[in-house]
């Protein structure tokens, strides 16, 4: 079961910081589903997490201002 994190209303750098802090609570292989409404974050957070070794399972755009990013912890 994936853990959910709602980061609507958050902007950089908190989008990355809060995602990373949540990931630290998970076990390796667990999945985190994060909701963003800040366009720059949707490009930068996945790229930064990949750089840290985590796997981006999917990025889904729900509407003009809502994105769902699914991450598997390394």
């Amino acid at each position: 079961m994936a853990i959910e994190l709602d980061l609507k209303g958050e902007v950089c750098p908190y989008t990355f910081v809060k995602t990373k802090l949540k990931l630290e609570e998970l076990d390796s292989g667990e999945e985190l589903v994060v909701t963003f409404d800040h366009a720059p974050a949707v490009e930068n957070v996945p790229r930064s997490l990949k750089n840290e070794g985590h796997k981006i399972m999917g990025i889904e755009q729900r509407n003009d201002h809502l994105w769902i990013v699914r991450i598997r912890k390394a």
Binding site: P13, P40, N44, S48
Partner: peptide, 10 residues
């Protein structure tokens, strides 16, 4: 690159 403070830290 249009990046973030993560890139700044790197």
């Amino acid at each position: 690159l249009f990046g973030s403070q993560y890139d700044h830290a790197c």
